[in-house]
Write a protein that binds this DNA or RNA. Structure first.
Lengths: 203, 203
DNA sequence: CCAATTTTTGACCGTTTGGTAAACGATTGC
DNA sequence: GCAATCGTTTACCAAACGGTCAAAAATTGG
C-alpha cells in the first residue's frame, strides 16, 4: 500500500501519480488550497476520490508534493544567471527566460502566486532555506557588476523583484491582460519588457 | 429586516455592515472566495453567523459588495492621470500614487489579485464595462504623448501593465518581499521604481 | 412607562467536505 | 494455474459548510 514512496513505484503508479498531480495543479492553481476539493481533483484526473487517496496521503500531501517540485523549476533560470563578460546580456537572458516560463507554465506561476498571496504558510521554510540564499548570492553578483560600472546603478534586490513582478504578471493576471490588450500580443510584451530593463541597466 | 439596503440604514446598521465588510476583506483577501467561510468572517467580525446573514444576503452578497466598492478605489489614481504640460511627471505621479496604495491597502490589492488569478469569474463584466474603457482612454492619451515626442517610445498598454505589475507586487507578494529584502525598505523600493520608469520614459 | 420595531442568538437542516473500511477486480510471480 | 500482491470501487463516516427559523434581547418612538 503506497501513499508514501518507500519502495520502487511501478509504471502504473508513476502514471497515475502524474495524472493526479497534473489535475491537482489545475485545481489548486485556480482555487487555492482551501478552495480546492478532492472531488474536483478526482474529477479532473478521471479517478475516484478513494483512488486518489490511495496514491497520496491526503489533500495536504498532494499540495506539498506540487510545491516542493515547483520551487526548483521556478528558480532554475535564476541559478543559470552566472558571472560573465556581458552582465547586461546575462540579466536580459534571465528576463527572457522568466517571461517565457510565465507563458509556458501559467499554472505553476499562479500556484506560486496564490501561495505567496496567502502569506506562504506552507512555504515559509522553503523560502528561507531554498530561495533566500540563492537570492542573496545573485544580489551580490549583480552588486559586483554595478560596482565595476558594467551596468547602471540599481538596487539588485529590487531589480530582481521587479523582474519577477513584470514577468509573472503576464501569467498571473492573464484574465486581465486578455481583456485589455488581447492574449495574442506576446511579441509586443517581449519588446516592452526588454526595453524596460535594458534602459534601466544600460550605464 | 435588512439584507438589502432598500431604506435608510440606521447608525448601528452602518457600523455593523462596516465591521463585517472589514472582517470579510481580511478573510477573502487571504483565502479567496471559495476558501473563505462565513464562520471565519463571523469570528473576525466578533459577531454570530446568523447575525451576519441578517445584514447580508449571503456569502456571495458580501463578496460582491467588496468587489463593487473596490474597483472604483482601485482605478481612482488612473482617472486622475490627465493631459498636462509635463507628461513624465503625470505618469510618475501615477506610479507613486499606485505604489503608495499598495502599501496602504494591501488587503484590497490581494483581494483584486486573487480574483483575477482565478480568472475573474465574478468581475468579468466589471472589467469590460468599468476597466476597459478607462484603460483604452489612458492608452490613447499616452500614445499622444509618445507621438508628440514628449516621452520615449513605449507601448502604452504594456507600460500601464508593467506599472500595475511592479506596484501591486509589493502588496501581493509581501510575504516574499519581507523574507528577501525586509518589509522596511519602502524608500529603496520607491527609489528603484522611480528610476525604472523614469529611465524607460525619458526620451 | 410601554408597545412596536430592530437586532441578536441558539438550535437546527440539508449538503459538501476530507477521509476510511472493506470488499471487489486486476496483475504479477512462480 | 494459482496464490499473493496491487489497484479500484462502493458504501460510509464525522466534521464543517452555507443558510434558516423562531424566539429572546435590545432599542426606539410615543
Amino acid at each position: 500500500m503506497p501513499a508514501d514512496t518507500a519502495k520502487k513505484p511501478s509504471r502504473i503508479q508513476l502514471k497515475n501519480r502524474g495524472i493526479i498531480l497534473d489535475a491537482a495543479l489545475d485545481v489548486f492553481s485556480t482555487h487555492g488550497f482551501r478552495g480546492a476539493t478532492l472531488d474536483q481533483i478526482a474529477e479532473a484526473a478521471g479517478l475516484s476520490k478513494p483512488n486518489i487517496l490511495y496514491y497520496f496521503g491526503g489533500k495536504d500531501d498532494i499540495h506539498r508534493t506540487l510545491l516542493n517540485a515547483l520551487l526548483d523549476v521556478w528558480l532554475a533560470p535564476l541559478v543559470e544567471m552566472t558571472d560573465t563578460d556581458d552582465p547586461l546580456d546575462a540579466i536580459m537572458d534571465y528576463v527572457h527566460r522568466k517571461l517565457e516560463m510565465s507563458w509556458e507554465m501559467p499554472r505553476e506561476s499562479r500556484l506560486f502566486a496564490g501561495e505567496v498571496i496567502r502569506g506562504a504558510p506552507r512555504m515559509a521554510t522553503d523560502l528561507e532555506t531554498g530561495l533566500k540564499p540563492l537570492f542573496d548570492e545573485k544580489c551580490a553578483l549583480i552588486q559586483r557588476w554595478v560596482d565595476d560600472g558594467r551596468i547602471a546603478q540599481v538596487s539588485p534586490a529590487h531589480l530582481i523583484m521587479s523582474i519577477w513582478a513584470v514577468t509573472q504578471h503576464y501569467a498571473d493576471f492573464e484574465a486581465q491582460v486578455g481583456v485589455l490588450v488581447g492574449s495574442g500580443s506576446q511579441d509586443d510584451a517581449r519588446a516592452h519588457v526588454d526595453a524596460m530593463f535594458r534602459s534601466l541597466l544600460t550605464p
